[in-house]
Nucleic acid binder design. Structure first.
Lengths: 200, 200
DNA sequence: AGCCTAAACGGACTTTACCCCGTTTGCTAT
DNA sequence: ATAGCAAACGGGGTAAAGTCCGTTTAGGCT
């Protein structure tokens, strides 16, 4: 049996990763996402620039890592939190709850999510596919009759994650309170889901 | 009456804009979007770097301009082309046709669209809002009964424009022929629209 | 304990987007 | 024509992302 252990990450590497992530969070809180620089991060963390790049590959890699951590926490709630977000409730109710929770999550993290985009890579992927899978499963449980559940789940996912981008794209100068957007998008999502899952 | 004419763009400026746009198209065709550099563009066009930035502000500005031109052409078809894409057909049929055409357009231009994103700005906006407005109008004509037509049109727009990103995010290495994606997304869109506009 | 190697580290170097400002040029009113 | 000026041009300068490679170190092995 070859490769019993591909020799995991070294202790100092792990330590430095944590340190960098934490420092990044500080810098974001202090100066805002777009003013976080690799040099600045390295210096504040007391490490070399080469180290930062070794750990995260690219600038957006840092934000991907950050987002990933937040994402994991979010999924935790979905997989084993209390209903209706967690398991145990009616599938349609869970879909609605999921959408609302997801919107709140995206609103809270949009700056980081945006910075996680990378011009050189296809697209970070990461979270959206998880979202899509969850939606797909719930749709199946809800017994929706449609030619292609896959296609529908792709579009619902987009309908869920996309509006935020559209919303931000148009706001420009005026920045209405997050609370309102949260509610508007949540209500729309609920209406959409209920209309689609309605049995004629 | 002040500002009779804010003194329009100078002739040489117009000429150079065209030239830069055309050169950009060449470079994209030759080396791919992500290898187009501002220096390279300026040199090939026989102009100074400063000029390029004066015209487009930022690197992504170039791609926004490029996309804008393509977009205008597309909207032309929608506003005064033959039905069902153009005016004259049943609203639901037009919605379906619009979605299919839009998907094809996005697939054809996704590389440029992606490059048009700008880390420093909210989001290019530009086209999506037009798309949304059109959808909004058609929904109104189709007499859909929903609490918020605005919310619905935002989400439908996202459902239309978003899947492409999701699709691209997951493909990674394998790149299935565009034709198939085109059809899959088109069919899904049609199913979604018909389900939503169906009168129970 | 001491050795050995793969992994991690650091920082100088390169590339590229973007800024600045002195110079040039198309327009318009005389 | 031509003078005046706002606008356009050019290219050197700066900052930040990303690369390279020589140096250091953790941690398994003898």
């Amino acid at each position: 049996m070859p490769f019993g252990k591909p020799r995991g990450e070294r202790a100092d590497a792990v330590r430095n990763r944590e340190r960098l992530l934490e420092t990044a969070r500080e810098l974001i809180a202090e100066y805002g996402v777009e003013h976080v620089t690799m040099d600045g991060l390295a210096e504040r963390a007391g490490l070399g620039k080469g180290t930062v790049f070794r750990r995260f590959g690219t600038r957006s890699g840092i934000f991907q890592a950050l987002l990933d951590a937040a994402e994991r926490q979010f999924q935790e709630q979905v997989l084993s939190g209390p209903p209706p977000l967690g398991p145990g409730a009616d599938p349609v109710a869970r879909l609605v709850a999921y959408g609302r929770a997801r919107i709140a999550f995206l609103l809270a993290n949009h700056a980081v999510a945006r910075a996680a985009l990378d011009r050189a890579q296809p697209i970070p992927a990461g979270d959206a596919s998880v979202s899509q899978l969850h939606i797909r499963v719930l749709l199946g449980q809800a017994d929706v009759r449609m030619p292609s559940l896959d296609g529908l789940s792709i579009q619902l996912t987009a309908a869920l994650e996309g509006p935020l981008l559209l919303y931000l794209s148009m706001s420009g100068s005026s920045v209405p309170p997050t609370r309102d957007v949260d509610r508007l998008l949540g209500d729309s999502w609920q209406a959409l889901v209920e209309r689609i899952t309605a049995t004629p």
